[in-house]
Design a protein around this nucleic acid. Structure first.
Lengths: 151, 151
DNA sequence: CCCATCTACTTAACATGTTAATCACAATTG
DNA sequence: CAATTGTGATTAACATGTTAAGTAGATGGG
């Protein structure tokens, strides 16, 4: 037990940094793929959510794609400009809107989904399916934690 | 085996999203703490690296704090403006510079390190020390992976 | 020594992250 | 129904992320 008192965690044992580095490893190739198509990682997330879940309002898109509403507002404007999504007013609540992916949007996903899945599969093979699942379980547990937080 | 063919991973089982959500859980309280002091999460990372490792050049700071050089350039300008770091030309290589944390910078760390460690400890207690270590191991393994990448 | 090339850092341009403020509309209450 | 409060989305302002281009200084031949 030769641990120094109050020894702060090395940057390698810092969870925020470790999460950041891991994310970079995984997203790097995906970002490169999307860069060729002209959409960002965040725009891709929004399109995938809309493709999987159908028409949604911005608040739910934000939750599912892990974006804050101010960012999403700008992203939706961009995607609408590219005609990858369309927006319609909510029939009863005039504060809301309904966002739908367009045919072009779906096509963009179709064009890139295979490559995306290939990258996923490569990760599974390289890292190991068991460890990947274990990692996902731990991350989801961590996320499910703290509904109160230590502050 | 009732798996649908080509079934894409749900957003919850997507590693990039899971990493993002987990990071938000961990960083949220830390960000709040730093927000009160007037430094960002990235500025905090740079200061901690400089405090732990001493005088460094920007390239090494970028690696250790997980920032890209263009971001770091702006961050160093900001930190220099706040007199939390100082910059000096490299004695032999005039392309480089040497960045050092100032007394004010060290003081800022001292003032917030305890709270930071308290939040870390709370995470360890809530999540479990064993699982936290396991998670860190998996993340580091993932990071150490792919020196070639699947592209 | 000169040139081609590489390296360290910076700048530029655009997209997103983050917090606070704002606006329109909805829901609630008196 | 009017006033208050809450909600959904947007805007504003500043910081960072990301890619590409630029600049100054080092480095390695010829």
């Amino acid at each position: 037990m030769d641990m120094k008192p109050n020894s702060p965690p090395e940057t390698n044992r810092s969870l925020p940094i470790a999460l950041l580095r891991a994310r970079e490893k995984v997203m790097g190739p995906i970002r490169a793929m999307l860069n060729d198509v002209g959409v960002t990682e965040q725009q891709w997330r929004v399109l995938r959510v809309l493709n999987e879940r159908g028409t949604l309002d911005p608040t739910e898109i934000a939750e599912r794609s892990c974006l804050l509403l101010p960012s999403l507002t700008r992203i939706l404007q961009t995607l609408e400009g590219k005609v990858l999504i369309s927006r319609a007013p909510h029939p009863t609540d005039r504060r809301k809107q309904l966002v739908t992916i367009t045919g072009s949007g779906r096509q963009l996903i179709v064009d890139n989904l295979q490559e995306s899945q290939r990258l996923n599969q490569w990760l599974r093979d390289s890292f190991g399916a068991a460890k990947l699942d274990e990692l996902l379980d731990l991350l989801n547990e961590l996320d499910a934690l703290e509904r109160d937080s230590g502050r």
